[in-house]
Design a protein around this nucleic acid. Structure first.
Ligand code: FES
Ligand code: FES
Lengths: 146, 146
DNA sequence: ACAATAAAAGACAACAGCGTCTTTTATTAT
DNA sequence: ATAATAAAAGACGCTGTTGTCTTTTATTGT
C-alpha cells in the first residue's frame, strides 16, 4: 500500500521488543513470530537485517534472543522505513511515470504531493516510543488477534 | 506506492484518449504507447480490459483504434482504480496485519486512516475531465518528457 | 570437553507485477 | 474475394516480494 509488508513486519517487531515488559529481556524468534502472527523464518531475516544495521540486538545460544536498548524509543518510523524499504518508495510518480517532478508534474501530482508530505511528516515525527505507548495503554494492538 | 503502475498507466491512457484533440478520433495503440512512453503491448492489455468493462471503446482493422465518448469526462479516478486494482488496495493494514480494523487498530491505524481518507476523497472527486483540463491548460503533462 | 540452544546464513519455492513476443480475429479498403 | 490493417488473445519470461526449509555458527550450562 505505502510501505512493504516486510517493513510493516519490521516496525511491529521492533515495537514488540520495545514494550516495557519486553525491553529488559531477550526474546526468541519463535515467541515473537507467534505473538505477532508473522512467518517465523521470514521475520527472523527481517530482524537480522535490523541487527546488522545496529538498530536492535541479538545473542545466540541458550537464553539468547532479540532485544532492544532504551534509545530505541527515540527511533522514528522513518529510520526503519529507510533501512527496510529505502526512501525511493516516497519519491515515485503516482501515475507511474519515470520520474516525479514538480517542474513537469503529472495530472495527479499536486493532489498526491500533499498526501505524500503528510505521510512523510508522520514517518519523521512518530517514534517507536509513541507506538509503544499506544500498545501499552491498550489503545492499539500488534497482533491483530484482539 | 498507492495504486499499481498498471493503474497509473490506465489513468494516463484514458486521459490521453479524452483530450479535446483526441476525443473525436480513434487512436492506435502504437501512437498512444509512444506518446505516453509506456510499453506498447502492456498498455494494449490494460486498455483492452477497460474496453471489456465498457469504460472506453475500440474498433479493429484499418483506421481502427481506441477512443472514448463524452461521458468519460464525468468518470472519476475511483472508477478506474476500482476496475484495475480493486478497492482492496485501500483497505489493507498499514503494518501488514491480516485485517485493518478500527475496533482493533494497529499502532499506525489512526494516522494512516486520515491519510487514507484523503486519498479516497481525491479518488472520489477527481474526474477524468479534471485531469484533462490540467493537461489542456498546459499545467500538467502525461508523458513525463517535458 | 560436550550437549543443548537459538540466532545466522543459505538455498529454494510460490506468487504477483511488469513486460515482451507471437498468433488469431475482426474490420476495412481494394 | 483478397489483402492490409489493427485490436484481441495467448504464451511466455523477468524480477522483486513473500515465505519455507535446512545447515551452520556462536553461546550457554553441565
Ligand atoms: S509527477 Fe506524478 S506524482 Fe509527481
Ligand atoms: S489496523 Fe493497521 S492500518 Fe488499520
Amino acid at each position: 500500500m505505502v510501505i512493504s509488508k516486510t517493513c510493516g513486519y519490521a516496525i511491529r517487531g521492533v515495537v514488540f521488543l520495545s514494550l516495557d515488559q519486553n525491553r529488559t529481556k531477550k526474546i526468541g524468534i519463535v515467541e515473537i513470530a507467534e505473538e505477532l502472527q508473522i512467518p517465523q523464518h521470514f521475520l527472523s531475516k527481517i530482524l537480522q537485517n535490523l541487527v546488522n544495521k545496529g538498530l536492535i540486538y541479538s545473542v545466540r545460544g541458550p537464553h539468547g534472543g532479540f532485544f532492544t536498548k532504551e534509545p530505541i524509543l527515540k527511533t522514528t518510523i522513518l529510520d526503519i522505513v529507510k533501512i527496510v524499504d529505502g526512501l525511493s518508495v516516497l519519491k515515485k510518480c503516482f501515475l507511474g511515470r519515470e520520474e516525479c517532478s514538480s517542474e513537469n508534474p503529472c495530472p495527479m501530482h499536486d493532489e498526491f504531493e500533499s498526501c505524500r508530505e503528510g505521510i512523510f511528516d508522520t514517518f519523521r515525527n512518530k517514534t517507536i516510543g509513541d507506538l509503544v505507548q499506544g500498545v501499552e495503554s491498550g489503545e492499539t494492538t500488534l497482533s491483530g488477534i484482539a
